[in-house]
Protein backbone atom coordinates (compact mmCIF):
# COMPACT_ATOMS: atom_id res chain seq x y z
CA UNK A 1 0.00 0.00 0.00
CA UNK A 2 1.49 3.31 -1.06
CA UNK A 3 1.65 6.31 1.22
CA UNK A 4 -1.40 8.42 0.46
CA UNK A 5 -0.48 11.34 2.65
CA UNK A 6 -0.56 14.57 0.63
CA UNK A 7 2.65 16.48 0.00
CA UNK A 8 2.81 19.82 1.84
CA UNK A 9 0.19 18.59 4.28
CA UNK A 10 1.57 20.92 6.93
CA UNK A 11 0.53 23.88 4.76
CA UNK A 12 -2.76 22.44 3.55
CA UNK A 13 -3.87 22.09 7.15
CA UNK A 14 -3.91 25.87 7.47
CA UNK A 15 -6.92 26.03 5.14
CA UNK A 16 -10.41 24.74 5.63
CA UNK A 17 -11.35 22.10 3.11
CA UNK A 18 -8.00 21.97 1.27
CA UNK A 19 -8.11 20.25 -1.11
CA UNK A 20 -11.88 20.23 -1.30
CA UNK A 21 -13.92 17.03 -1.37
CA UNK A 22 -14.44 17.15 -5.10
CA UNK A 23 -10.76 16.29 -5.65
CA UNK A 24 -10.47 12.67 -6.78
CA UNK A 25 -7.77 10.23 -7.81
CA UNK A 26 -7.35 10.13 -11.58
CA UNK A 27 -5.37 8.17 -14.15
CA UNK A 28 -4.30 8.83 -17.72
CA UNK A 29 -1.95 11.04 -19.69
CA UNK A 30 -2.03 14.71 -18.75
CA UNK A 31 0.05 17.75 -19.58
CA UNK A 32 2.05 20.35 -17.71
CA UNK A 33 4.28 23.24 -18.79
CA UNK A 34 7.94 22.66 -17.95
CA UNK A 35 11.35 24.11 -18.72
CA UNK A 36 13.63 22.50 -21.27
CA UNK A 37 16.27 21.74 -18.70
CA UNK A 38 15.33 19.84 -15.61
CA UNK A 39 14.66 23.06 -13.82
CA UNK A 40 14.20 22.52 -10.10
CA UNK A 41 10.85 24.30 -10.15
CA UNK A 42 9.30 22.13 -12.86
CA UNK A 43 7.25 20.18 -10.35
CA UNK A 44 7.08 22.58 -7.45
CA UNK A 45 3.75 24.23 -6.60
CA UNK A 46 3.71 28.03 -6.79
CA UNK A 47 3.47 28.49 -3.02
CA UNK A 48 6.59 26.38 -2.48
CA UNK A 49 8.77 28.15 -5.03
CA UNK A 50 10.94 30.77 -3.38
CA UNK A 51 13.20 31.64 -6.29
CA UNK A 52 11.88 33.36 -8.31
CA UNK A 53 9.60 34.92 -5.69
CA UNK A 54 5.89 34.40 -6.03
CA UNK A 55 3.89 37.50 -6.82
CA UNK A 56 2.20 38.35 -3.54
CA UNK A 57 0.80 41.52 -2.03
CA UNK A 58 -0.27 39.96 1.22
CA UNK A 59 -0.76 36.54 2.76
CA UNK A 60 -4.27 36.26 1.34
CA UNK A 61 -2.67 35.64 -2.06
CA UNK A 62 -1.44 32.26 -0.85
CA UNK A 63 -4.38 30.11 -1.85
CA UNK A 64 -4.92 26.40 -1.22
CA UNK A 65 -4.57 25.64 -4.91
CA UNK A 66 -1.11 27.25 -4.84
CA UNK A 67 0.07 24.04 -3.14
CA UNK A 68 -1.09 21.97 -6.11
CA UNK A 69 0.40 21.57 -9.58
CA UNK A 70 -1.26 22.93 -12.72
CA UNK A 71 -2.12 20.34 -15.33
CA UNK A 72 -4.16 20.23 -18.54
CA UNK A 73 -6.31 17.50 -19.94
CA UNK A 74 -4.72 17.63 -23.41
CA UNK A 75 -1.59 18.99 -25.12
CA UNK A 76 -3.71 21.32 -27.24
CA UNK A 77 -5.40 22.82 -24.19
CA UNK A 78 -2.01 23.24 -22.52
CA UNK A 79 -0.71 25.04 -25.61
CA UNK A 80 -3.79 27.23 -25.98
CA UNK A 81 -3.71 28.35 -22.35
CA UNK A 82 0.00 29.07 -22.54
CA UNK A 83 -0.52 31.14 -25.65
CA UNK A 84 -3.39 33.06 -24.05
CA UNK A 85 -1.45 33.92 -20.91
CA UNK A 86 1.70 34.72 -22.86
CA UNK A 87 -0.21 37.25 -24.94
CA UNK A 88 -1.81 38.70 -21.83
CA UNK A 89 1.54 39.82 -20.42
CA UNK A 90 1.14 43.56 -20.19
CA UNK A 91 4.72 44.55 -20.92
CA UNK A 92 7.17 43.11 -23.43
CA UNK A 93 9.82 42.12 -20.87
CA UNK A 94 7.20 40.30 -18.78
CA UNK A 95 6.82 37.82 -21.63
CA UNK A 96 10.42 36.77 -21.09
CA UNK A 97 9.79 36.42 -17.36
CA UNK A 98 6.74 34.30 -18.19
CA UNK A 99 8.85 31.99 -20.35
CA UNK A 100 11.43 31.63 -17.57
CA UNK A 101 8.79 30.90 -14.95
CA UNK A 102 6.49 28.61 -16.88
CA UNK A 103 8.96 26.97 -19.22
CA UNK A 104 8.76 26.50 -22.98
CA UNK A 105 7.75 22.86 -23.27
CA UNK A 106 4.69 20.76 -22.57
CA UNK A 107 5.41 17.51 -20.77
CA UNK A 108 3.02 14.63 -21.24
CA UNK A 109 2.90 12.83 -17.92
CA UNK A 110 1.35 9.54 -17.00
CA UNK A 111 -0.70 10.01 -13.84
CA UNK A 112 -1.93 7.02 -11.86
CA UNK A 113 -4.45 6.68 -9.08
CA UNK A 114 -1.75 6.44 -6.45
CA UNK A 115 -0.22 9.79 -7.48
CA UNK A 116 -2.67 12.16 -5.88
CA UNK A 117 -5.93 14.08 -6.15
CA UNK A 118 -7.27 16.29 -8.94
CA UNK A 119 -10.32 18.46 -9.48
CA UNK A 120 -12.41 18.39 -12.65
CA UNK A 121 -10.74 20.07 -15.63
CA UNK A 122 -12.04 23.54 -16.41
CA UNK A 123 -14.66 23.15 -19.12
CA UNK A 124 -13.21 26.02 -21.14
CA UNK A 125 -9.45 25.58 -20.98
CA UNK A 126 -8.90 22.05 -19.62
CA UNK A 127 -6.88 23.26 -16.64
CA UNK A 128 -7.00 21.42 -13.34
CA UNK A 129 -5.08 21.39 -10.08
CA UNK A 130 -3.32 18.30 -8.85
CA UNK A 131 -2.30 17.69 -5.23
CA UNK A 132 0.42 15.02 -5.12
CA UNK A 133 0.81 12.31 -2.56
CA UNK A 134 3.99 12.47 -0.57
CA UNK A 135 6.35 10.15 -2.43
CA UNK A 136 5.39 10.99 -6.00
CA UNK A 137 8.14 12.14 -8.39
CA UNK A 138 6.61 13.42 -11.61
CA UNK A 139 10.02 14.02 -13.12
CA UNK A 140 10.26 10.26 -13.56
CA UNK A 141 6.83 10.00 -15.15
CA UNK A 142 7.40 12.22 -18.19
CA UNK A 143 6.47 10.28 -21.32
CA UNK A 144 7.25 12.95 -23.91
CA UNK A 145 7.98 16.65 -24.36
CA UNK A 146 6.52 19.07 -26.89
CA UNK A 147 8.06 22.41 -27.79
CA UNK A 148 5.74 25.36 -27.34
CA UNK A 149 7.74 27.72 -29.55
CA UNK A 150 8.61 27.17 -33.20
CA UNK A 151 12.12 27.83 -34.51
CA UNK A 152 11.16 31.38 -35.52
CA UNK A 153 10.21 32.21 -31.92
CA UNK A 154 6.47 32.21 -32.43
CA UNK A 155 4.14 29.98 -30.47
CA UNK A 156 3.04 26.86 -32.29
CA UNK A 157 -0.61 26.96 -33.25
CA UNK A 158 -1.33 23.26 -33.15
CA UNK A 159 0.16 20.15 -31.70
Amino acid sequence: MLNKKLKYKQFLENYTDCPSEDFKEISGNFCRWISINDYENNFKPLNIITNPPQRLLNDSDKLCMGYGLSFFDSPQNALNRYSTLFEKQKRAHLKEIFKTDKGTQIAVIKIEHEDGLANEPNATNGHFTFHEYELVEFKEKIKSRINIFADDGTINIEI
Binding site: T50, N51, P52, P53, L56, H93, L94, I97
Partner: peptide
Protein backbone atom coordinates in the same frame (compact mmCIF):
# COMPACT_ATOMS: atom_id res chain seq x y z
CA UNK B 1 0.76 47.51 -11.00
CA UNK B 2 3.27 44.65 -11.29
CA UNK B 3 6.06 45.73 -13.62
CA UNK B 4 9.16 43.66 -12.97
CA UNK B 5 10.89 40.97 -10.99
CA UNK B 6 14.44 40.19 -10.06
CA UNK B 7 15.85 37.61 -7.69
CA UNK B 8 13.91 37.91 -4.47
CA UNK B 9 11.90 41.05 -5.35
CA UNK B 10 8.74 41.83 -7.24
Amino acid sequence: DWVDRIEQYN
